[in-house]
Amino acid sequence: MKGKELDKLLVRIAAGDNAAFEELYVRTKRGVYSFLYTYFHNAADTEDAMQSAYLNIKRGIHTYRPGSNALAWILQIAKNLALNEIKKKSREVPTEEIDLGATLNEGGRYEITDLMQRVLTEEEQRIVTLHVVWNYKHREIAEMLGVPTGTVTSKYKRSIEKLKNAFKEEP
């Protein structure tokens, strides 16, 4: 989704348009989900965080400045939320083991989200997510992550190689 369209949606939400909020969710949910997944590595926490992230977007809509980088604003909210949740969880005593292993879908193949988690580092997952799901350019990702563009390009290429090899090894 283009930044300008997203900007318009956020402006409509700020004006109290709940339909715009629903549309925002439909159009950004894949990107936010896959981005949050790179922090939590499991569906249950990611799903909870999704609800909280969109709640924060709604509650904090007045802090969005029309015309600024709408995607970055949304991802910043998601990132802050993820880091806070992780910090909170690190203080809690775990009550049950969370299965971080890869899962098989009905066709007996690793689900891609879990496969990525298995073969890519956290940073590589984020780069692939931002590029493939959000359609960010390498240069923009570099800005977001605070690394040189060359690093993003090489890590992206390496990630794709790793994924291709992993696909070949699938049963």
Binding site: F21, M50, I112
Partner: peptide, 19 residues
């Protein structure tokens, strides 16, 4: 896969008034 995995928004989030 993401389309299938992403949950629907809960009513409490959808119905939260926009401030």
């Amino acid at each position: 896969e993401l389309d299938a995995a992403v949950p629907a928004l809960k009513d409490e989030v959808l119905n939260e008034p926009i401030p």
